[in-house]
């Protein structure tokens, strides 16, 4: 079975103080730590488990610069067999569609039975790349998978659907699945594990290698333009409601009402 897993390197935002870069369109990254996107971790784990069950080859792909190799190495340490880095200055500023375009151009030349993506990324948080990539590849897709079994040319997928329910569906291979948290518990990647794959060669592909014009990818190929980033208006410190208990409670009810909480 040939399994492809698309991953992304994202900043860890948990404790970080975010600052918007001078151009207003990105974050200042000097003090940020980066790691694999949490949902992509589930996707890699799912890919490796499919390989362990059915045999085959897992290929990890990411779009990024040489720093992004880090997450490919991590995927290799988890059990991926090969890794491809889509690296080109022309990819910069890509929206989800332009990312899906680049991934599609790479994957269409590879054999695949299952493509796995994270359901969403913790940075852009649009949750679009998987669905767009499936449409470009013209394969059936299932979003937000919380369970996955492959058997005899078909994938049986449990996924989150409307109203917080889950539905189990079956699709024929090849297909694309996006991984939601709960799909699995990813294995731990030890420092030693990373060191062991330090010498595995990572294939790099430029837009030209993929047969893509520079205008078809990156910002030029995007359908949605980012105008700028801004910090949300409210400072993140609780508004402490002072005064008498009744007054405080009344204000709180007012706040809840404003937020649609009542």
């Amino acid at each position: 079975m040939d399994i492809i897993v698309c991953i992304k390197r994202v900043p860890d935002l948990a404790e970080a103080g975010l600052e918007i870069a001078a151009d207003g369109r990105g974050l200042r990254t000097e003090d940020l730590d980066f790691d694999i996107n949490e949902w992509d971790d589930y996707a890699v784990e799912a890919a490796v488990r499919l390989k362990e069950q059915h045999g085959g080859v897992v290929t990890a792909i990411t779009v990024g610069d040489e720093d992004a190799e880090e997450v490919l190495r991590r995927a290799l340490a988890m059990g991926a067999d090969q890794a491809i880095l889509l690296d080109d200055a022309a990819f910069a500023g890509a929206d989800p569609f332009a990312i899906a375009t680049a991934l599609h151009a790479c994957i269409r030349s590879l054999p695949f039975d299952v493509v796995l993506c994270g359901a969403v990324t913790s940075d852009g948080a649009s949750g679009q790349v998987g669905g767009m990539l499936a449409a470009l590849l013209d394969v059936p897709q299932v979003a937000l998978a919380t369970g996955l079994e492959v058997d005899g040319g078909r994938a049986r997928v449990r996924h989150e659907v409307e109203g917080g329910l889950e539905r189990e569906v079956e699709v024929a291979l090849p297909c694309l699945i996006t991984a939601q948290s709960g799909l699995n518990q990813p294995r731990y990647v030890s420092i030693r594990g990373i060191r062991k794959v330090a010498d595995v060669a990572i294939a790099a592909r430029s837009a030209g290698d993929l047969g893509l014009a520079a205008t078809a990818v990156g910002e030029a190929g995007s359908r949605v333009r980012l105008e700028g980033l801004l910090l949300p208006p409210a400072g993140k410190r609780a508004e402490i409601l002072e005064g008498s208990l009744d007054a405080a409670v009344a204000t709180l009810v007012e706040r809840l009402r404003e937020r649609g909480g009542l």
């Binding site: 989800p96 569609f97 948080a125 679009q128 998987g130 669905g131 499936a134 299932v142 949605v224």
Partner: peptide, 23 residues
């Protein structure tokens, strides 16, 4: 932007050739 929207919108936007602003 719920579970169905995430499942439906990206593929539809590509097929319809429309940009998609998410969430």
């Amino acid at each position: 932007h719920g579970n169905l929207g995430i499942d439906l919108a990206p593929g539809l936007s590509v097929r319809a050739g429309m940009p998609l602003l998410a969430d």
